[in-house]
């Protein structure tokens, strides 16, 4: 069950998308998100989706894996679309008691669904094709101008690296603890909401205990190796940008312009 959470998971590969400079990938993802949010018609949204699909096909990520990353947001999608379908005023096409479905409702919820799915797919694509370490490296580099205003960029990036590094570990740990408690007859699947919340205690307490233990161990280990962040550190991996990166960025901006143009034309 927990294994289904794939957001933030890296899927190794050697496609064009994998090889792009992570700094550019982050910016391009930002442009994509801006595209999806600024589009105010189905056609505009379609342009964003086309850009997403092109990147997706180039990345050679299996479609099944993409679907898996969408699984955790199904409840959100259902919730928003139900709200939109039933509670938007407009031309009624179906009525049952106080529930009514309107054309506007259907339109808006379809629009929202496509937008949410595209957003999740876009950001999953970034994390699927970029290893977490490279990703934080790139974020650190992108934010490095902020050092001028005394923002501890390196430390923030380090915190992010550690957080990302420990997500799989904690998931694994949770899985293990859940199995251990299930082996002792813990019942997490049935009962009232309150009972189920209570059933989480045997999992959360050991999880917190072990998270604290890990944090302590890690801090100690870093200190033992004389870790010192920030100034004067050189990096193992240098980031290089090439023609392909500028091309990809250019392409995303062209698509973005197209969306904006469509907005003006349609509006």
């Amino acid at each position: 069950m927990l294994k289904d959470i794939t957001i933030g998971q890296y899927f190794p590969g050697n496609s064009v998308v994998h090889r792009l400079d992570p700094r550019f990938k982050i910016i391009i993802t930002g442009v994509l998100i801006a595209m999806l949010f600024s589009a105010d018609s189905f056609i505009g949204l379609g342009v964003g989706v086309i850009f997403l699909l092109i990147s997706f096909l180039l990345s050679q990520i299996p479609f099944k894996l993409m679907l898996k990353s969408l699984k955790p947001i199904v409840p959100i999608i259902l919730f928003t679309s139900v709200l939109n379908i039933f509670f938007l005023e407009g031309v009624t096409i179906f009525k049952l008691g106080f529930l009514k479905i309107t054309v506007e409702g259907l339109r808006t919820s379809a629009f929202m669904i496509i937008r949410i799915i595209a957003l999740i797919m876009g950001s999953s694509l970034l994390t699927y094709t970029t290893s977490p370490i490279t990703l934080t490296d790139a974020i650190e580099r992108l934010l490095s101008p902020l050092k001028k205003i005394k923002l501890p960029v390196h430390e923030l990036a380090m915190m992010m690296t550690i957080a990302l590094r420990f997500i799989p570990t904690l998931i694994e740990e949770t899985d293990k603890i859940m199995s251990a408690q299930k082996a002792r007859g813990a019942d997490m699947e049935s009962g009232s909401l309150l009972q189920r919340a209570k059933a989480l205690t045997p999992i959360l307490i050991p999880l917190f205990v072990s998270a604290f233990r890990r944090a302590e161990e890690l801090a100690l280990a870093m200190e033992c190796r004389c870790y010192q962040g920030g100034d004067g550190r050189t990096r193992l991996r240098q980031l290089h940008s090439s023609g392909a990166d500028y091309f990809a960025l250019g392409l995303s901006i062209v698509f973005f312009d197209l969306v904006l143009l469509l907005n003006c034309l349609m509006g």
Partner: peptide
């Protein structure tokens, strides 16, 4: 089934209660 490093599954306030978890279930 007793897992590898089972001490990491302990959660109750007292030893007594923790041993009781399985039989109680």
């Amino acid at each position: 089934l007793v897992f590898q490093y089972p001490e990491y599954q302990i959660f109750e306030e007292t030893v007594y209660k923790d041993i009781a978890f399985g039989p109680k279930n």
